[in-house]
């Protein structure tokens, strides 16, 4: 388990609840703190989970410590733009590209950011709740004349 007091000392406005840490801002600082300066080194960024909560996108950074074998979720809310953590965890690159692709979040600091799955010129971001699912490109083309 992480040292809550130490974390609170550095970042007073952080909410800690079980294995979840809710952060409003400075997410990169918090993660970098958790990675190096805590009792437990969270040396692996297991994944970044994004979820569209209609008026914002919730990002969950799922950290893992190979020493203590425990997970820790750092949760934050973003809108359109977020800070990249690729300089802390190289594995974040694909995750950020994926979220950029599917949610339209722009990760500042990730220079190689590009769409991961969808074509470069694809309109819209499929995993957003507002994504138009009646797009004709999504329909199977049954035109026999082709």
């Amino acid at each position: 388990m992480i040292n809550t007091d130490l974390l609170k000392e550095y970042f007073p406005d952080v909410l800690v609840y079980d294995y979840y840490i809710f952060v409003e801002k400075n997410i990169v600082d918090v993660i970098s703190f958790l990675k190096t300066k805590n009792y437990v080194d969270f040396d692996v960024l297991s994944q970044i989970i994004a979820a569209d909560c209609t008026d914002f996108v919730q990002l969950t950074y799922r950290l893992y410590s190979t020493e203590n074998n425990e997970f820790l979720n750092v949760v934050t809310k973003v809108k359109d733009e977020a800070a990249s953590v690729t300089h802390l965890y190289k594995s974040a690159h694909f995750d950020e590209c994926e979220i950029h692709d599917l949610f339209g979040i722009n990760f500042v600091g990730n220079e190689k950011l590009e769409r991961l799955y969808m074509p470069e010129d694809w309109d819209g971001h499929p995993l957003l709740k507002s994504y138009d699912q009646t797009d004709e490109r999504l329909e199977w083309n049954n035109d026999q004349s082709l």
């Binding site: 994004a50 979820a51 569209d52 694909f94």
Partner: peptide, 15 residues
């Protein structure tokens, strides 16, 4: 489900 997210091993191995 509101959102399902999969994390798989190969995804990071490609990277």
């Amino acid at each position: 489900p509101y959102r399902v997210k999969w994390r798989t091993g190969s995804y990071y191995a490609v990277q």
